[in-house]
Simulated assay, not measured.
Amino acid sequence: MKHSLDILPLSAWIDTNGKPLIIAGPCSAETEDQLVSTAHLLANTGKVNVLRAGIWKPRTRPGEFEGIGSIGLEWLKRAKEETGLLTATEVATAKHVEEALAAGVDVLWVGARSTANPFTVQEIADALQAAGADVPVLVKNPVNPDLSLWIGALERINRAGIKKIAAIHRGFSSFEKTAFRNEPMWDLAIQLKTIAPELPIINDPSHICGNRELIPYVTQKAIDMDMQGLIIESHIDPSVAWTDAKQQVTPAALADLIDSLNVRKPESNNPAFEDKLAELRQQIDKLDDQILKTIGDRMKIAEQIGEYKRDNNVTILQVSRWDEIVQKRVQLAKALNLGEDFTVKYLELLHNESIRKQNEIMNVKTTAEA
Rank of each mutant, 00 (worst) to 15 (best):
H3E: 03
S4L: 10
L5E: 06
D6Y: 11
I7V: 14
P9D: 02
I14Q: 04
D15Q: 02
C27H: 03
T31I: 07
E32Y: 08
D33V: 08
Q34P: 07
L35R: 15
V48W: 07
I55E: 07
P58W: 09
P62H: 14
F65C: 08
S70Y: 06
R78V: 10
E81Q: 04
E81N: 04
T89W: 06
T93H: 01
V105M: 11
V105D: 08
G111Q: 13
T115L: 03
T115F: 05
T120P: 00
Q122Y: 00
E123V: 05
I124Q: 09
I124A: 05
L128T: 01
G132R: 13
V143G: 03
N144A: 05
N144Q: 14
D146H: 01
W150T: 13
A153D: 03
S173Q: 12
K177A: 03
F180L: 05
F180P: 03
N182A: 09
M185L: 15
A189M: 07
Q191F: 09
K193Q: 09
T194I: 15
T194N: 15
I208G: 06
G210W: 07
G210N: 01
L214R: 13
I215H: 09
V218W: 08
M225W: 15
E233C: 11
S234C: 14
V240K: 10
A241M: 01
A241I: 01
A253L: 11
A253G: 00
L254A: 05
D259Y: 09
S260W: 02
L261K: 11
V263T: 10
S268H: 11
N269A: 09
F273L: 04
F273Q: 10
L277G: 05
E279A: 08
E279I: 01
D289P: 00
K293L: 08
R298Q: 06
R298A: 08
I301R: 15
A302N: 11
L317N: 15
K328R: 11
R329F: 01
A335N: 09
Y346M: 03
M362C: 14
A368L: 12
